[in-house]
Design a protein around this nucleic acid. Structure first.
Lengths: 337, 337
DNA sequence: ACACCTGTTGCATACGTTTGCAATAAAGGT
DNA sequence: ACCTTTATTGCAAACGTATGCAACAGGTGT
């Protein structure tokens, strides 16, 4: 109904110039008298500055593009929520895109974001082709990878200390006396998956053990379940499994129970992420915590300084998380050497 | 690095006017010859139209504001993903806000959205004060409530058929031979909660049964768990519980198991939503499905027609979903009369 | 009383696009 | 061959705001 009310109308009503109105609302200097008049007039008319016009002139849209792939993995909704809050506190808002990890789809999505003049991009769990990173670099739009590394891309990234985390998880299984330890890895195409696997292999090697098996779970429930069935089918079976994330670990646990085996008496399980579900009694999953709050914090500050600052080169931030010992794995045997 | 490339630069390079460039990119009529020249020049310079400037002039931002409260309930991430895809297919994008259900916070969030010139608002599981609905109405911005009704607000809403769903679930428990049936309700402040409860009460009354108990679970795991403990503590306990959503039902199941009781032999449980977790073997939850895909579809078409059309009055759309019979509740006894 | 400095205000322009209007070119009908 | 219709194109004015610049007011120090 009401036509959109502009700063000019407020100016007329307050008996001042349009610039005065602009200055009052953009926080620039203005005398107390005019500020008062302007605010009064604005309140009467229900005026609010048009963010688009402001973005147009300042070149600052105050919008961050967020692209995310796996929303069924509980880890991401939580991260999304915290990112939203943190950015909102900095006066930024999130333009969200969900996508598969398909390169073409990611490309159109990123293009869309750039078209919308986002000031920065957060890519959660997706990879960017080098053509895309070039595009963003040329447009001067900083990109931060969340929970995914991409070495050599020149992109900043925030992850947990995945190698160390994988090592810690594996070490815990070894300390509990396990020897036939398998690893259901994250997607081989992802740095997080490769790093956690590296940690696993290092820990095994340091203990003089050979991995019972290493299979790629693709961060998928179904693949993880199938892999588990396969691991259990042989004459010889593992006595512990380190699973590269909680999302898969839940499927693994269910598969093991379906086979009539007991956790942790027959097989110990350790996951990665510490999603909310891990603490539920149904799973009671020992897992390596990814400190979402600190990861989010690091992501936002990295992004903000890249937006503000001149040429901040790529930061690769790794945040350590503790092992949360729960009932899905046996506790360590005696004191550590 | 590169300065932002504008339509004017493309025009110069292609040897045409700036209007010509605009017409080519906005799909208006242009001769094949100029279109070709323009596209070539644009490609060379890496030109893409500035969506903000376009929005400014056309008054169409092609952005939809989405506000969502409970992201820990699995139902919403899935809905979010589908909404995002559906809107993207219509050329729209989502500006997302997460918030609590606190009225003040919702207000600032909606104001933010309006400031950003969104063309429509989807409110998932949050209520809007009448001051807010007035604000949106005055700005001419349509609002659609997703999975939440608000009668008398004049807002369109898309929900499942909650009364009927509650009735169906309860009927199933009655058909299975249960008589001491309790209901852990959704938040009393929400229409969905009240409707499902209504369905429960209707079904009980029609069967000549009196509810064993009705308690408000607030759509919260913790509250639901506490309520369950209370229900089990008495000398007499229910032999079935209809829980107003899956999210709470999982907590209820775990609490019952912790008490050493068997599901469904001692107590049958039925939930509401059919979130992905409900199908996991760990829960195997009988539940009323909310057809997310159809709800999303209805939401998007409602919103789109409200944006396009003139004065479409409030639509209240209810979509029926089937009962998904799983292992958490006893099957019906014999054929239904 | 004069020069000087500081803070406030209005004017006009710019941001990058769309679009009504008029001018021009091309095409079609008789 | 001439008039009419149609398609294409450039010009210029918007959209709603921010901001450099100049003008001006008021106050202070000597």
């Amino acid at each position: 109904m009401d036509r959109r009310v502009t700063s000019l109308q407020v100016a007329k009503r307050a008996g001042v110039s349009q610039s005065a109105v602009s200055r009052v609302f953009s926080g620039a200097s203005a005398s107390a008298a005019t500020a008062e008049k302007v605010r009064a007039a604005a309140a009467e008319l229900g005026y609010r500055p048009n963010v688009l016009a402001r973005a147009m002139i300042t070149g600052k849209s105050r919008v961050i593009g967020l692209v995310v792939a796996y929303l069924d993995n509980q880890f991401y909704p939580e991260a999304l929520q915290r990112l939203s809050n943190a950015l909102q506190a900095s006066g930024y808002h999130i333009l969200i895109f969900t996508t598969s990890n398909d390169a073409d789809e990611v490309e159109t999505v990123v293009q869309d974001m750039l078209d919308h003049q986002v000031e920065g991009i957060i890519a959660a769990s997706v990879s960017l082709s080098s053509a895309l990173t070039d595009l963003c670099a040329k447009a001067g739009i900083p990109v931060v990878l969340f929970n995914r590394g991409q070495p050599g891309s020149g992109l900043s990234s925030v992850t947990s200390a995945n190698v160390k985390g994988g090592y810690t998880a594996t070490q815990a299984l070894i300390d509990a006396g396990h020897t036939r330890i398998a690893h259901i890895a994250g997607w081989e195409g992802s740095m997080t998956g490769r790093d956690r696997r590296q940690g696993f292999e290092d820990a095994m090697a340091d203990a003089g053990l050979t991995p019972f098996a290493i299979v790629d779970g693709m961060y998928s429930r179904d693949v993880a379940a199938a892999s588990t069935r396969q691991l259990l089918s042989g004459a010889n079976r593992p006595d512990a499994i380190f699973v590269a994330n909680d999302h898969m670990a839940f499927a693994v646990i269910e598969e093991i129970r379906a086979a009539g085996l007991n956790i942790p008496d027959d097989i110990s399980i350790i996951g990665y992420d510490d999603t909310p579900l891990a603490a539920w009694p149904s799973f009671d999953l020992t897992t390596v915590r990814q400190p979402v709050n600190r990861m989010v914090e690091a992501t936002v500050t990295t992004l903000m300084s890249a937006i503000a600052g001149a040429e901040t080169y790529a930061h690769t931030i790794e945040i350590e998380g503790p092992l949360i010992q729960r009932g899905s794995s046996k506790p360590p045997k005696g004191p550590r050497p």
